[in-house]
Computed example of a mutant assay.
Amino acid sequence: MNSTEREDDVAALFPVTPDALARLHEQLEHRAQADGLIDIAYRTVDSPVGTLLLASTTSGLVRVAFQREDFDRVLEALAEKVSPRLLRAPGRLDGTARQLDEYFSGARRTFDLPLDYSLSAGFRQVVQHYLPHIGYGSTATYKEVAESVGNPRAVRAVGTACATNPLPVVVPCHRVLRSDGTLGGYIGGLQAKTALLQLETSK
Score class of each variant (00 low, 15 high):
residue 1 M to F: 12
residue 2 N to P: 06
residue 2 N to R: 07
residue 6 R to P: 02
residue 8 D to P: 00
residue 9 D to T: 05
residue 9 D to L: 13
residue 12 A to P: 03
residue 13 L to A: 14
residue 14 F to K: 05
residue 16 V to N: 04
residue 16 V to T: 04
residue 16 V to M: 13
residue 18 P to V: 05
residue 19 D to R: 10
residue 20 A to C: 12
residue 21 L to D: 12
residue 21 L to F: 10
residue 22 A to H: 11
residue 22 A to G: 11
residue 24 L to E: 13
residue 24 L to A: 15
residue 25 H to N: 13
residue 27 Q to C: 10
residue 29 E to L: 04
residue 30 H to C: 10
residue 30 H to V: 12
residue 32 A to F: 07
residue 37 L to H: 10
residue 38 I to P: 02
residue 39 D to Q: 04
residue 41 A to C: 06
residue 44 T to E: 15
residue 44 T to K: 02
residue 45 V to G: 01
residue 46 D to G: 01
residue 47 S to N: 03
residue 48 P to I: 03
residue 52 L to I: 02
residue 52 L to P: 00
residue 52 L to F: 02
residue 53 L to M: 08
residue 57 T to N: 07
residue 60 G to N: 07
residue 62 V to L: 10
residue 64 V to M: 08
residue 69 E to S: 02
residue 70 D to N: 08
residue 71 F to E: 06
residue 71 F to T: 00
residue 74 V to T: 08
residue 74 V to C: 10
residue 77 A to G: 13
residue 77 A to M: 14
residue 80 E to R: 13
residue 83 S to D: 12
residue 84 P to M: 13
residue 86 L to K: 09
residue 86 L to V: 08
residue 87 L to W: 09
residue 90 P to W: 08
residue 90 P to Q: 07
residue 91 G to P: 01
residue 92 R to V: 09
residue 93 L to F: 06
residue 93 L to A: 05
residue 93 L to Y: 06
residue 94 D to M: 08
residue 95 G to W: 04
residue 96 T to G: 01
residue 96 T to E: 15
residue 99 Q to P: 03
residue 101 D to C: 01
residue 104 F to I: 03
residue 104 F to D: 05
residue 105 S to W: 04
residue 106 G to L: 03
residue 106 G to V: 00
residue 108 R to M: 14
residue 108 R to L: 15
residue 109 R to T: 13
residue 113 L to Q: 10
residue 118 S to A: 14
residue 118 S to P: 05
residue 119 L to R: 04
residue 119 L to C: 06
residue 123 F to L: 00
residue 123 F to I: 00
residue 124 R to E: 15
residue 125 Q to R: 06
residue 125 Q to S: 03
residue 128 Q to M: 08
residue 131 L to V: 07
residue 133 H to Y: 06
residue 134 I to Q: 12
residue 135 G to M: 08
residue 135 G to C: 04
residue 143 K to D: 08
residue 145 V to Y: 01
residue 148 S to E: 09
residue 151 N to T: 01
residue 151 N to Q: 13
residue 152 P to Q: 02
residue 153 R to V: 00
residue 155 V to H: 00
residue 157 A to E: 11
residue 160 T to H: 05
residue 162 C to D: 11
residue 162 C to F: 08
residue 162 C to P: 04
residue 169 V to H: 01
residue 171 V to D: 13
residue 172 P to H: 13
residue 172 P to Q: 13
residue 172 P to V: 11
residue 172 P to G: 08
residue 173 C to L: 08
residue 173 C to I: 06
residue 174 H to A: 07
residue 175 R to L: 12
residue 175 R to A: 11
residue 177 L to K: 07
residue 178 R to Q: 15
residue 178 R to F: 12
residue 182 T to V: 09
residue 183 L to P: 03
residue 183 L to V: 06
residue 185 G to V: 06
residue 187 I to V: 14
residue 188 G to H: 06
residue 189 G to D: 13
residue 190 L to Q: 14
residue 196 L to Q: 05
residue 197 L to A: 03
residue 199 L to Q: 04
residue 202 S to R: 11
